[in-house]
Design a protein around this nucleic acid. Structure first.
Lengths: 361, 361
DNA sequence: GTGAAAGCGCTAACAC
DNA sequence: GTGTTAGCGCTTTCAC
C-alpha cells in the first residue's frame, strides 16, 4: 500500500481522507472548515459528517506553515517552583491563552546557555514573542549575547521581552516590564530603620543576580539616606531558597554577628531564617526583627506574620504578554522600545519591632 | 516585488535564500544543516557562511510537517501557583526537555471545558502526549468525555497520561502515574489517632475533587480501623488554598465545633488554619494538634513545624513523561495501559501533641 | 459552488 | 557531491 489510508480508528487522517469520504475536493473541505466561505448546505453537511466519522482535526503545523496558524509564545524561567516565578508564569499563561496564543515553556535552572538555546528554538518555531521571566546573572557576556538574540528575534518579526528583569544596554530591541525592585527594598529597609534598627543583617542572593543586586542597592541606599553606613560584614550572599535562608541565619548566629534585624532577599529566605531564629531560641520580633520580599501568600502564615514588600507578579506576567503582542501589532514606524515599571509597596505585618535604646541613633 | 527577499536584517529568510546566496540548491543546504550527509568541504563552508550572514534558522513547523520535527508534549494543570502543581510541572518540564521534547502548557483553573479544548489543540499540534496534571472534579461526564479524548489521542498515535489523578474507567487508553493519596491520608490520620485524638476536624477540598476525595477516604478508613466512628459534623469542605483553610478554621471555631486536632487537606490549608488558630489564642500543638498534606518546602517553617505527608511530586511529573514516551516507543502488540502508584510517607514534625485524658479512648 | 493547481518551507528519493 | 523532483498537509488563487 503506497498511501496510508486513515480509516475510522487508524492513524491520523488528512484533509484528503475527509475529502474522499465526502466525495468532494480537499479545497472544499478546507472551505467548510474555514467557516465563512460560501458552500452549499448539502455539501457542508456531507463534509461535516465525514469529519465526524474520521474524527478529523486539521494539522496545526501545516496550517501554520500555510500562514493561518495559532500564534505561539515562548517563555523561560529559572524554576517554576519559586512562588514568585509561579505567579508570573500564571499571569503570562492566562493572558496568552486569553489572547489566543499557545505557550511554550522552558525552565533553565539559571543556566544562561540553556536560556539561549531555548530562545533559538523559539525562533525556529516562529514564536510571536519570547518572554524571559525573572532576574538573571548580569555579566557583559550575558548582555552581549542576549542583545544578539534580541536582534535576531526582531529581525524575524518577533520580540524579546524582559519580565522582572532590568533592561539590556540601550538600543537593544527589547520590551521590558519590571517592577521597582530597588525602590521596594529601599522603602522596606527605611521602615526597619525608622523603627530604630541600625545593624540590619542582609540575607542576599547570588551577587551577580539582577534581582539580588537591586534589592541590595535599596538596602544600601536606605541606610545612606539615614546617614548610617551599613557594615559590610552584615551582607551575606546565598540564593533565593528557604534552605539558603536557614543556613545563612545559622551561620550568622554561630559566628556571632551582631544585628537587631534581618532583611531577607525573599520571603522564602525569610522563612528559613525565621526557623533558624526560632531554633536558636530567639523571639521575633522581640529579640530580632525580620522582613522579607515578594509577599507570597504564605507570608501571612509565618509566625509572626511577615512584614514584606508586595510585588504585582501576576500583573507583571500579564503585562509582559500584552506588551509583546501589542508591539507586534503596531510595529513599524518607530514603535519605541517600551519599558514599564510597576510599583511595589511594603505591607507591614508583625515581624518588626521597635528597637528601644537609651539614646536615639 | 513578487518574492520576498530576505536580506541580512529583513524578514525571516528561507532555505532558498540561503541556497541562492551560497550558489547551491536548497537540497544541499538542507544536507549540510542536517549534519551527516556527505558534502564537499568548500560547499559546506560556503553554505555555512550564507547561513551566518542571513542568520538563518530553519522553520521548525515546516520540518515537523516534513517528518523531522522536535516532538512536543502538552501539559495541563489547574493552577501553576499551587506548590504541589509547581513541583509536578517542574518534573514534567525537566524530563521533557531532557528527552528533547518541547512543552506546551495550559492552566485551566479547574475548568473542564477548557481542559478539553486544550487537549483538542494538542491533538491538532500532533503532540506526542498530553499530560493531565493533578486531580480533577470527578463526574460521569468527566469520565465519558475524557475517555473519548483519550481514544481520539490514541487513534492519532498520541497518548493521554493522568498524573496525580486516578484512572478513568477500565479500558480507557490512558497511562496513569499517581501516588497513594488515600494511603497517605490513612497513615497520617492513624498517626494523629495514635496520639489519643478522637475528634479530628477534617478541612477538605471540593467534594467532587478526586484528590480531596482520596484524602477523605483515608481519614475515614483510619478512624474505622481504630473502631471510632468519625463525626460527620467534623468534615468541612473548601478548596486547597490558604485562605480556605483560614476561613474554615475561623468558622469552625465560631460555631463552637469540638475537636482536639485538625487534619487539613493540604499544607496550604493547614497554613491558613494555623494562623486562624493562633489568632484565636490557641496553642499548637498545646491546645490543638494540626497536620497537613503535601510536604511543601514551607511546611518546615511554619511554627510549629508541620507534620504532614510527603508526596514525590517532582518524581511523579518525571515519570509521567517517561511513561508517555516509552509507551509511544513500544506501543504495538499490546503495550498494556500502565498504572504506576508511588508511595508516600508521613513526616513527623512538631505540630501534633499527645492527648492526655484520664481514661483511654 | 466547486475543483485543479500552485505554494508555504522543508526533507528525501532519485537522478546524474 | 549535487541538483531535480516529489512529497508533507494545508490554504488560496484562478478557472469553470
Amino acid at each position: 500500500m503506497t498511501r496510508k489510508s486513515a480509516d475510522g480508528g487508524g492513524g491520523r487522517s488528512t484533509i484528503r481522507d475527509v475529502a474522499a469520504r465526502a466525495g468532494v475536493s480537499a479545497a472544499t473541505v478546507s472551505r467548510v472548515l474555514g467557516g465563512v466561505y460560501p458552500v452549499s448546505a448539502t455539501t457542508r453537511t456531507r463534509v461535516l459528517r465525514a469529519v465526524r466519522d474520521l474524527d478529523y482535526v486539521a494539522d496545526a503545523r501545516a496550517k501554520a506553515i500555510a500562514g493561518v496558524g495559532t500564534p505561539t509564545l515562548g517563555f523561560v524561567l529559572d524554576d517554576i517552583t519559586g512562588p514568585s516565578f509561579a505567579l508570573m508564569a500564571h499571569g503570562v499563561e492566562r493572558e496568552a491563552t486569553r489572547l489566543g496564543h499557545l505557550c511554550l515553556v522552558c525552565s533553565t535552572d539559571g543556566d544562561a546557555e540553556h536560556e539561549l538555546a531555548f530562545i533559538e528554538t523559539m525562533r525556529a518555531q516562529r514564536a510571536a514573542a519570547v518572554i524571559l521571566v525573572g532576574g538573571s546573572a548580569d555579566t557583559p557576556e550575558y548582555r552581549a549575547r542576549t542583545g544578539r538574540v534580541a536582534d535576531a528575534l526582531a529581525a524575524a518579526g518577533s520580540r524579546l521581552v524582559l519580565c522582572g528583569r532590568p533592561p539590556l544596554d540601550p538600543g537593544a530591541p527589547v520590551s521590558v516590564v519590571e517592577y521597582d525592585n530597588e525602590g521596594g527594598a529601599y522603602a522596606l529597609c527605611a521602615h526597619v530603620l525608622s523603627r530604630g534598627h541600625r545593624r540590619i543583617l542582609y540575607l542576599g542572593g547570588k551577587p551577580e543576580h539582577t534581582t539580588a543586586q537591586g534589592r541590595e542597592r535599596g538596602y544600601l541606599a536606605a541606610h545612606r539616606a539615614r546617614g548610617v553606613e551599613p557594615d559590610p560584614v552584615l551582607r551575606l550572599a546565598g540564593d533565593f531558597t528557604r534552605d539558603s535562608g536557614y543556613r545563612s541565619m545559622r551561620r550568622a548566629l554561630e559566628v556571632g554577628l551582631e544585628f537587631t534585624a534581618v532583611m531577607a532577599a525573599t520571603d522564602m529566605v525569610a522563612a528559613g531564617a525565621l526557623t533558624a531564629l526560632h531554633e536558636a531560641g530567639l523571639a521575633v520580633p522581640g529579640d530580632i526583627s525580620l522582613v522579607g520580599y515578594d509577599d507570597i501568600p504564605f507570608a501571612r502564615d509565618l509566625h509572626p506574620a511577615l512584614t514584606t514588600v508586595h510585588v504585582p507578579y501576576e500583573e507583571l506576567g500579564r503585562l509582559a504578554v500584552r506588551t509583546a503582542l501589542e508591539w507586534g501589532r503596531k510595529r513599524g514606524p518607530e514603535a519605541s522600545d517600551e519599558h514599564l515599571l510597576l510599583g511595589t509597596h511594603v505591607v507591614v505585618r508583625d515581624s518588626v519591632g521597635a528597637l528601644v535604646t537609651s539614646s536615639a541613633g
